[in-house]
Design a protein around this nucleic acid. Structure first.
Lengths: 234, 234, 234, 234
DNA sequence: TATGAATGAGGTTTCATTCAT
DNA sequence: AATGAATGAAACCTCATTCAT
């Protein structure tokens, strides 16, 4: 009794070990430069065994990435689970994403994967599906808060919550992507600090989706981003 | 007299021919999948000759990309050269970028290059520099209009024009990137049309950077994006 | 009492099931392309179990092939069991082989195996022996008829029945092999229909081994193959 | 002047060297077991260079095989170029093929390739075409002699020369194939010497296609194959 | 008896880059 | 300036077989 369970557990554990090894290598080298040989060696397993658990290098990559998505999901869930006002939660969401960016840069980078369909070739349908679902959960968190904001009259009623989520997330994401790869360029050639840009971008975005009433109420918060308090309300 | 000039001209011409060939191949296959063999064949030149003019495949890639930057530059210059109000010009800038996305998708895609530092390895300092400068010019166009907006009291005075340019461009760019690679996903799984999202995002961004006075004045324009005219001004 | 017998029966049954599964896979993919994984899956058994019953993939292949040999054996036995004249039986043997070729192409193809010693590596002595014996039985059928023909004065007395069997079978086999793999080539490049060639070859071979008396007697049958009746007897 | 010619010559020479190396390896190991590594090493060239000259291992295999076809072609041409009677030439053709089998066994074995379509996958259209044409030439030699025999009234008029060529060649080939792979089996298990079988088969085939007149004329030759002179003519 | 996880040795092909001519 | 032959280092994936349970 319990033998199949133990087997199952061991198998799951083995999968974890493989992901651990893969993660190490992918973090260091990226998808392309990483080789199955390296991963196998890191996992202290034969290459064949890797393919017993994952269909392709790309699948393995997604498996690692899923961890990142889960972490982000948890951070978002945390940000939206407090009792604080919805406006604050929206800000916290942005903060959480930035925190994720800083704390889990390697996972953040993996997300680029989706922007390069050329890499998708080796991915199995299953894995892609899993990833898509995991992704959905994260979106749900953001959409949920915005919807609540609308319901409470804090977010402009004419906005579609899903569209708005895409807008907010995309703009944050875009700037952080630049931070990841072009921080110096922007500092040296354009004289801007992208961290500052991100902060302001978030504030602008937030302002733009809040109702006048909410803006007025949370004026202090929104003013954070500007050196001189000039947030014009009317 | 004149002979060195002719030589120079011929050399330049050869460089153009090579770029033409490279462009054809890169457009079809992308950076990775494209091979120097293909490019050499397309150029009706030997592979060795390619290396006489460009240090690496990546350099060649950037050379092609520069054309895209120039095109975008021209489109931006066109958008900002009219006699129309600054607010209109800002909108036109967004429209121009979207137009670029639609008309020159292949160039747009090349820009992803910068987001993948793993591809940067073969790039020469020189080429990277050139690219950076060309890029600057485009930024200048955007920054210029925003600065003018500030000067005219149309754009909020507390905004830094460079930062604001980064914010505006990044958000547009982020959504178009998704349009390029995840259009179906967003339509099917989240029920949103990214084109619509882009339009709204642009409007929101614009609203958020305009002064109250300007917003009021151009209310009609800004309201375009929402089905029911609820754009609250105060 | 009876328990060991049941065990034995079950074991034999299991062997059959495995052969069924292997046959399915080998027919579809051939020896090389077939994998033990596929066979195991088709047999709804673990790969390890396969090796409990058969020593190697090649052994399994031979086990399947033996079925084909048996089928052919039965068809030959059928052809030679009638009360018809020996000459007719000889023709029927040829027809039977062609029928086998048409009805059991997959088995026919398996026989190629013997022509490729490079594939023999995994075969166990035992299995090879079994196969050899099964083969013998088939040869016996052919040889028997020829011997009878000699005894009856129908087949030329100076012929060795075994040698003659080899000659007859080999020539039929050679042409059918071409039919299997080069039908189109011969049709298109050489303008011959191999089916026609087979028919004529069989007739020629038959003619060449019959005594003059027998040829005369069965002239009508032998003339089947030629458009104009020119079978010259003297 | 002459430089491009020399280049061309060197290139052709290099192709020859590669074929030499490939031949060595293929002869030893066969198509499957041979590896490009081995061939490269034997050629004292890098693996990449191999692929510069031949598109695939299979193409290289065919290139080697072509040599065999040419040799056979020459031997056939030699056999049919004498001033001897057509009947003798027909016998000489059979002898030549057997000679080829004995002297160039390795090439003979390569011909099996065509019987296994599973191996054809890597072959380029071009190479397949070349091979087909080279093959044609050999067939032409055989067909030519048979046609001449018909014209001279030596070979039965109702026979189609192409079909007859296929019949003759196939039967010889079938027996030699058995000689190559099952010589011992037939000796030990069936008590026949395949060399003897081949000789007799050839005689039988020849007899069967000759006109009565020709058979009578060359009776002595035909009787070679039987221990006791019992060749019945009428 | 049955399992199925693990192995590990390959195997072909690709390509950016160099360099002698 | 132009050529193009040569390089050689990977890289991913497969699969028959074994063996501990």
């Amino acid at each position: 009794m319990g033998i199949p369970e133990r087997k199952e557990r061991e198998k799951e554990q083995r999968r974890e070990e493989i992901i651990n090894a893969a993660q190490k290598v992918f973090f260091e080298k990226g998808l392309q430069a990483a080789t199955m040989d390296e991963i196998a060696e890191a996992a202290e397993l034969s290459k064949g065994t890797l393919y017993l658990y994952y269909k392709s290098k790309e699948d393995l990559y997604l498996a690692v990435m899923m961890r990142g998505i889960e972490i982000l999901h948890n951070m978002f869930a945390e940000a939206t689970s407090s009792q604080e006002p919805t406006v604050v939660q929206l800000m916290k969401l942005g903060d959480a994403y930035y925190e994720f960016f800083k704390q889990h840069r390697n996972y953040f980078r993996m997300f680029y994967f989706f922007q390069h369909p050329q890499f998708h070739k080796g991915v199995s349908e299953d894995m892609m599906m899993n990833c898509g679902e995991e992704n959905q959960k994260v979106w749900k968190e953001v959409i949920g808060v915005i919807q609540r904001g609308i319901d409470e009259g804090v977010v402009r009623a004419e906005l579609n919550p899903v569209e708005t989520a895409v807008i907010l997330w995309s703009s944050s994401n875009a700037i952080m992507t630049r931070m990841d790869t072009q921080m110096e360029y922007f500092k040296e050639r354009m004289g801007v600090d992208l961290e500052e840009v991100l902060r302001k971008s978030n504030t602008l975005m937030l302002e733009s989706i809040l109702t006048e009433k909410a803006k007025r109420k949370h004026q202090a918060l929104l003013m954070r981003s500007w050196p001189v308090a000039k947030v014009a309300v009317n």
